[in-house]
Design a protein around this nucleic acid. Sequence first.
DNA 1: GCTTGACCTTCCCACCATGGGAAACCCCAT
DNA 2: ATGGGGTTTCCCATGGTGGGAAGGTCAAGC
Lengths: 157, 157
Amino acid sequence: MNIGDAARASGVSAKMIRYYEDTGLIPPAARTAAGYRVYAEQDVHMLRFIRRARDLGFSVEGIRELLGLWRDRDRHSADVKRLALAHVAELRQKIRELEDMASTLETLAECCHGNDRPDCPILSELEAPGADGAVPAKRAGAIKALPATGRRQGPRS
Amino acid sequence: MNIGDAARASGVSAKMIRYYEDTGLIPPAARTAAGYRVYAEQDVHMLRFIRRARDLGFSVEGIRELLGLWRDRDRHSADVKRLALAHVAELRQKIRELEDMASTLETLAECCHGNDRPDCPILSELEAPGADGAVPAKRAGAIKALPATGRRQGPRS
DNA sequence: GCTTGACCTTCCCACCATGGGAAACCCCAT
DNA sequence: ATGGGGTTTCCCATGGTGGGAAGGTCAAGC
């Protein structure tokens, strides 16, 4: 199986498969005499594992740990659980931050007439925040525009 | 006022002020004979505006639009409101995706004994998803490790 | 005046995960 | 043998942010 077939079968793009190999997330693939990477069902299995972990929002580093446990037949499920719950905590933290932003902004928008006049409480608040601390004090980064949802190189869509 | 002072006064790091200038988000600052950037209160005002918009999760491009409206005395508050509500919708969308991930993972974790035995439903699900579609089909990117919350160059902390 | 330390300048590099594209090569079917 | 589609490596871009080096500047204290 060539890399393109593995990509289609796993839902991980060929580009990313090479990247995962480069960064040591997955072991180097076998090669044909001509240098083509060759994949077996087992490799596709692993790629699918990775793909699903990404779908659950794990970072590549997180996946590295998950893969370690996956391959370790003597693993303790407690370790997996700990990893998973730590990730859930991160997700919930992020959700809280986004929710704070959204509700603040929504509140401001509700106060805005939304007509053809220039006065606008949203801009006023950005100019000089009210003492009510409507704008949260903490940074959490912009909304990383949802990276093109939907598998880009998935099984022939 | 030099760039360091403007940074402290606005909560935007000197690095980022230069970056915003480079990318045209803010106009080029005046310079001393020696080439030092010089800022007036008005510039700090604008930087604070930017800073607060970032705190609300706006992207730099979004801020570019906000700044345009801010500077336009003939703006329609409806345009500001539309921008704000569109951003709220983005935030809520992202929240939904993260919430899906978190709840899926939490459910799986609840089913995991979390002991010293190797069998673990979390890994099983990653290996081969149950037909219940526990793993969401869409990608939303990993959790971009919360970028160092707290103003890094804030007003003399 | 001279030194010292804090500041400023530009330029390059790194992160993370992903895609785009070029130049070259390979394989298979007609 | 030719053409089309696969593959290889390599470089570049994204977005926002920081780190750091090499060199210029300024102000305070001696």
